[in-house]
């Protein structure tokens, strides 16, 4: 493989690598951070990088946005980008915000029940609750705990 071919390969794939890096940043936030709001933000970053990956696949060199002139006199020499990924992602963004809102409202309910939005504290609180339940159950069954 010659130098110019390698250069072309790197330039042609740099976009995918950029999106992979962004995606992994989002994944890291989701996995490593305990705060639930931060997890949602990380999830949004992950989502946006997937959107960018799709849109970049629909791009054509020298192309333009897939909107014809208003008088519909189409110049066959003009190249249009692929409209299909645009459609898919357009709807996905709005669905994404709706599901994000659902996640945030779950967080608010969790905060009301547990008084915290840190994952570790929630686990501790749940363990305490489970232990209390066990104890109450054991006493009801005759004192064996």
């Amino acid at each position: 493989m010659g130098d110019s071919a390698t250069f072309e390969f790197v330039v042609g794939h740099a976009n995918y690598w950029l999106f992979s890096v962004l995606m992994m940043t989002g994944l890291y936030v989701v996995v490593a951070r305990g705060n639930l709001v931060k997890k949602i933000v990380g999830l949004n970053m992950f989502q946006t990088s997937v959107f960018m990956l799709y849109i970049s696949m629909g791009r054509v060199d020298g192309g333009t946005a897939p909107i014809f002139p208003v008088d519909m006199e189409i110049d066959p020499a003009v190249i249009y980008s692929n409209p299909l990924p645009h459609v898919l992602i357009l709807t996905a963004i709005v669905v994404g915000i709706a599901t994000t809102a659902l996640g945030l409202s779950l967080i608010i309910r969790i905060r009301e029940e547990f008084g915290t939005i840190e994952e570790d504290d929630i686990l501790v609180a749940e363990r305490i609750l489970a232990a209390e339940d066990d104890k109450a159950h054991g006493e009801a069954m005759g004192g064996r705990t």
Binding site: V70, L90, T91, I93, V94
Partner: peptide
């Protein structure tokens, strides 16, 4: 139908 836009964006 003529320019960027549609129901999703308009709703938002």
């Amino acid at each position: 139908d003529f320019s960027p836009g549609g129901g999703f964006q308009a709703g938002v």
